[in-house]
């Protein structure tokens, strides 16, 4: 079987599914000043697992919106305007749904796969670890 290190190069999915891989990628993104994109990606996964009957879930949706989308951060810049509008409306109308961040996460993930992930695989941080 492939070692974890080899799997990291196969896809972003494998990298982020591995504790050491996710940690190293996070260190890389901190250096590139775009760690928010990864935190947002994990926040979307965490949100999807939350219980919609729990009052905390609506609060978390609002916090994710405020922290990453409303403030025009790097995450917001990588997201389509229609996607941001959809999330803003959902939060405002309290239409909380497990899938409400799915499209946004997909857009951020595609950007990560095309850019940060490719850069990571040729970065000093990765090569030194290998």
């Amino acid at each position: 079987p492939d070692s974890p290190l080899v799997r990291w190069t196969k896809s972003l999915h494998f990298l982020l599914g591995d504790q050491d891989g996710a940690h190293l990628f996070r260190t890389f993104l901190e250096r590139e000043n775009c760690v928010d994109t990864l935190d947002f990606w994990f926040a979307c996964n965490g949100f999807r697992q939350m219980d919609l009957k729990d009052s905390k879930t609506a609060r978390v949706a609002k916090v994710i919106f405020k922290r990453y989308i409303e403030n025009n951060s790097i995450v917001a810049k990588q997201m389509k305007p229609a996607t941001k509008t959809f999330i803003r409306d959902s939060v405002k109308k309290q239409q909380i749904d497990s899938a409400m961040f799915d499209q946004a996460q997909t857009e951020i993930q595609s950007n990560m796969e095309e850019n940060a992930y490719q850069m990571f695989l040729t970065s000093d941080i990765y090569l030194e670890y290998v």
Binding site: P4, F42, A43, G46, V60, R67
Partner: peptide
Amino acid sequence: MDSEDDLLQKCITSAMPKQR
């Protein structure tokens, strides 16, 4: 009640990969 930061951090941490 949890602060906004705590809520977000818990949400992120819950989705992080666990030890191999």
